[in-house]
Design a protein around this nucleic acid. Structure first.
Lengths: 213, 213
DNA sequence: GATTATAGTTCACATATGTCAACTGACATG
DNA sequence: CATGTCAGTTGACATATGTGAACTATAATC
């Protein structure tokens, strides 16, 4: 009985917490994280600077939460992409469509990831790259379904997954910089790049071969 | 006669200008550009804040100069890579060695490029990506020498060059984050990725084919 | 209904920033 | 040698920042 009614207070706290997060993401579409001040964020969120500390110890802590949230988006994207993946020969096209769609629905998350991946805050960079690694590993699992790849070593699969992930990430980063009219061109180029990679797959003879060739 | 002796004054100005540039690059190894303050830079360079304006209108102008300087490094690297490129089957290995070497000699330039490419300052991002584009185009020229590629369309070549450039850039960015002991692993992985790409090249059937497949 | 916990505010501080106006001093020119 | 140019300094300003101490008000507990 004592626990059920304790919701309104926590709920409203969560509300302004979300306001802080959204405020930060909004501001981060124009500046990078380490030039973002605590006061800016609270101003945008509509609260007093000192109230910030009721939610986070630190701006860095906020940043880490942003990383977490951003990658939840990515995770959902992967789920969608998997459900679409019919492997009817048009996997690349389908997957890219899913990515582009999610990018439009979660612009700020994607931009945050792209920007802070090599950004000026060490812990953030590390966190982003760790998550990105997990993401690529996840992708590597799916790649087993690709004809031929199932016989590859784990390392080789990760190598491939890394290449694909990077190529897609770069596409997203590029798309975020341009207008909608230039989108098809970039997407098409990426499609070609992924296809080129996929053409190399059947010819792959292992990392060792690469070493001596 | 009036012009010859006017060197000392200009020389010393150039000296502190270089000091500002070096100071900025040093500080940028830890923070991103848009969190870098004019005063920090002048402090590091050993001059007064207001003296900054004798050299640059603006921090942004300094930033653009940094872009220019950084890509001069890259240009020299390309020259070196070309002279090495014996095409004896080990081109990839050779080229990567050149890149890694240059990275060690110009750490701050490379880091600056990687960081500001998707960083928080619009004009800087644009400048970096413009130069990167030129760099990739330059690489595309060299690719004609690759068997088969000489018959490709210009667009397809640029697509290939973009993929290669990106892969190498990402390797550099990764190398900058880690210790020297982990270097070989990253380089090896990149070598494999480039090899995988090169294996796709002979099988490439054009952008149109990619469109319908 | 009285009491307590706490999200958010107010006020205050020390410190950092970009930039202006006026100055200094050394070099370069006449 | 007298003079003007100009790189760099001084001092000051308005403004921004992070954060501490004390406060207010309201929801949750007894």
């Amino acid at each position: 009985m004592t626990k059920r009614s304790s919701s309104t207070r926590l709920e409203s706290k969560e509300l302004t917490r979300q306001a802080l997060i959204r405020a930060a993401l909004k501001l981060l579409s124009q500046n990078s994280f380490d030039s973002l001040s605590l006061r800016e964020v609270t101003r945008e969120a509509g609260i007093t600077p000192t109230a910030f500390y009721r939610h986070f110890d630190d701006m860095e802590e906020l940043g880490l939460v942003l990383v977490e949230e951003s990658f939840q988006s990515l995770g959902e994207m992967l789920k969608d992409a998997r459900s679409q993946s019919s492997f009817d020969g048009d996997t690349i096209k389908m997957s890219l469509a899913v990515v582009v769609m999610h990018m439009h629905n979660h612009t700020s998350h994607f931009r945050f990831i792209a920007r802070e991946r090599y950004g000026g805050v060490r812990r953030l960079r590390r966190a982003v790259n760790r998550e990105l690694q997990l993401f690529a590993d996840e992708l590597a699992i799916d790649l087993v379904a690709m004809p031929g790849v199932d016989k590859w070593t784990t390392d080789d699969r990760r190598m491939l997954a890394g290449l694909i992930t990077e190529t897609i990430i770069r596409m997203v980063a590029e798309l975020l910089e341009i207008g909608p009219d230039e989108e098809p061109e970039i997407v098409e180029r990426t499609k070609c790049q992924l296809r080129l990679i996929s053409l190399g797959v059947p010819a792959w003879d292992g990392a060792l071969a690469a070493g001596r060739a």
